[in-house]
Design a protein around this nucleic acid. Sequence first.
DNA 1: ACATGGTAAGTAAATACTTACTATAATGGA
DNA 2: TCCATTATAGTAAGTATTTACTTACCATGT
Lengths: 224, 224
Amino acid sequence: MRLAQKRIAGPVRKAKIIQSAASLFAKKGFSGTKTREIAQRAGVSEALIFKHFPSKEDLYAAILAKESPVPGLLSKVKSLAGEQKDVEVFSVIARTVVGGAPDSDLMRLILFSALENHEMSDMFFHNHIRVFYDFLAGYIQQRIDDGAFQPVQPLIAARAFMGMLIYHRLLTVLFQAQLPQPAEDISQTFVNIMMNGLKIPSPEGAFRMSDQIKKPRKRTARKV
Amino acid sequence: MRLAQKRIAGPVRKAKIIQSAASLFAKKGFSGTKTREIAQRAGVSEALIFKHFPSKEDLYAAILAKESPVPGLLSKVKSLAGEQKDVEVFSVIARTVVGGAPDSDLMRLILFSALENHEMSDMFFHNHIRVFYDFLAGYIQQRIDDGAFQPVQPLIAARAFMGMLIYHRLLTVLFQAQLPQPAEDISQTFVNIMMNGLKIPSPEGAFRMSDQIKKPRKRTARKV
DNA sequence: ACATGGTAAGTAAATACTTACTATAATGGA
DNA sequence: TCCATTATAGTAAGTATTTACTTACCATGT
């Protein structure tokens, strides 16, 4: 029974196979995806897959190796960073992630490749997520030096912020745990907490919990 | 060649099979784990697995169904919550997660089961992580009502905090991305940021970014 | 003697990949 | 312009191995 509707140029067909395979690898992982399924999804015979790729493993590697450029976003964030617009810097990153980038399939591929211990998973993760992470740590360090941020470890702070965003995406992608609020409200709440924290400052103004946390000795009751 | 060294009581052998299977399912996922490997890890024949479990799928379900009680931790947190010790409430949760609970295998099982779309993955996730999440949201709401916390959406704030912690664990479990600081410092930095934010407050004291974020209209330069 | 724990050997189906062939489009000479 | 040849796209049928699971029997404890 005829599978491919019409003969297509080799590179076009290869791209279609890659697209079909990526979708299935994202959904089921490497081990859970069968080459018969990839062929069916691509609308070709199984044998044709092996005309284009030496093995299933090579097809998978080709997918992870694909560049997925940050679409001009890092340069925009860097521009805002140059102007020290703290809220905007964090907001642009928050809107991007909470708004759905990387997309669901890419999120799932990153996770599956890491869990399945694929040798390229570190590189894959770096290309898509850690690029913001590293930039943020540098920016936070600069703002601490400027006296605008309290003196925390920049890498920990960057991880805290990316953690809010990525965890939110994980809950929606893996557990369909959407929140009823619009994405804009959610991202702004994350930025607000990151900038200001939950606590309403006491009238002493600049009193900071970091001093209290660092010195866990007993304190006498304080009169206010 | 003899596999089992000695005949063992059925329930003990069953527990050994479960333990071996859990370890492999955490490492390789359901599809990536073969029943021959489980048998080898457990030191028995493949046939014996099917004396205890009707199918591989049933063995997997038995693993996900296992209760893993939060070891008295939630009650401790609730006690602190009763005394409105904000920093301690968040700190105990932070130390627990940053310090390594749930453990690596459990983290990986939660993720694999979600990615592989197992029907019990929601329940599994709830038993191990969402229990703190729901409690936190309630506590944050209460503290907002008390006037101690700024008025944010409690579920978003709870997700923000759990996100810091869980993301940190993900990076260490999946990418071996340990930070050089001790776990105690890391968890305290997370709590500090959650309570106080990054920004050093301006001299106006109670001026809050949440007002600024909500109204993104242009502002004239302000003299200070 | 019986109950229970355990396995070697096997089955049927699934799986990644190969082979030998067919179908179709492009090319170049007449 | 036509047609034979060549290049390339594509598949049916197959192979060797893997996989989850079964069967018929053996070994051991009560």
